[in-house]
Simulated assay, not measured.
Amino acid sequence: MKIKEIIVVEGKSDTIVIQNAVNADTIETNGSEISDETIEQIRLAQEKRGVIVFTDPDYPGERIRKIISNKIPGCKHAFLPKKEAMARNKKGIGVEHASKDSIREALRHVKEEYIEETEKISWNDLVSAGLVGGQQAKARREKLGKSLKIGYMNGKQLHKRLMMFQITEQQFADAMKEILQEEQER
């Protein structure tokens, strides 16, 4: 699998795993304190070939993703479910722990960032669906993120990602229907 875009990862271990799974070039952020020089490299990569941000499904990874999105609009994003990024000894989480198949799957479902002025899915829709507040909210957001391939996030981030990746009301409704059916079957 050849990837045209340049993949932005956190470190050398991520680059090695990505390049073992697919034919791709990477830029490493070397942690969550992204230098101005690295931002400029990512900006140039976005202009020339496009960028896929592929960071760890944890707080530092989300922080890096947010910094890049704010400074370089229009990037694409790949997400790994937390359980597929878990170290075998369960003492670490990151892209470097993922299997080749998990990486390929995440890269097949890249989401393109797009910020639209009109909101398709409202905050009230999230509250009504039990995705914000309540006992099952976190578990439902996790299932929704996996189903829509947009990663796990808190309620506020969920709302932003639904808009950013232009998730339609129908896609949202279908995913929620599946989640609620699964809950009823238990």
Rank of each mutant, 00 (worst) to 15 (best):
M1H: 11
M1E: 06
K2Y: 02
I3F: 03
I3C: 08
I6A: 04
I6K: 10
V9G: 09
E10F: 02
S13I: 00
S13M: 08
V17K: 15
N20D: 11
N20E: 10
A21R: 09
V22G: 01
N23H: 10
T26M: 03
N30R: 13
N30E: 13
E33P: 00
I34E: 08
T38M: 00
T38S: 11
I39W: 06
L44Q: 15
A45P: 00
A45W: 04
Q46P: 03
V51K: 03
F54E: 06
F54C: 05
T55W: 02
T55V: 05
T55Q: 07
D56W: 05
P57F: 14
P57L: 15
D58V: 03
Y59T: 12
E62L: 12
E62S: 12
I64Q: 07
N70Q: 15
N70A: 14
K71I: 04
K71T: 08
G74Y: 05
G74D: 03
F79M: 12
P81C: 13
K82W: 01
K83T: 10
E84S: 11
E84A: 14
A85C: 02
A87Y: 03
R88D: 14
N89D: 15
N89C: 09
K91T: 11
I93V: 15
V95M: 01
E96T: 01
H97C: 03
H97T: 07
A98W: 01
A106Y: 08
R108V: 00
V110Y: 07
E113S: 15
Y114D: 12
I115Y: 07
E117W: 08
E117D: 11
E117V: 09
I121S: 00
D125Q: 01
L126D: 00
L131A: 08
G133R: 04
G133P: 08
Q136G: 09
A139E: 14
A139K: 15
A139F: 10
R140I: 05
R140K: 13
K143E: 11
L144N: 03
L144M: 07
G145W: 10
G151L: 06
Y152M: 14
M153N: 09
Q157N: 15
K160N: 14
F165S: 07
F165D: 10
T168N: 11
Q170N: 11
Q170M: 03
Q171G: 02
A175S: 11
M176S: 07
M176N: 13
L180M: 13
L180V: 06
E183Y: 00
Q184C: 00
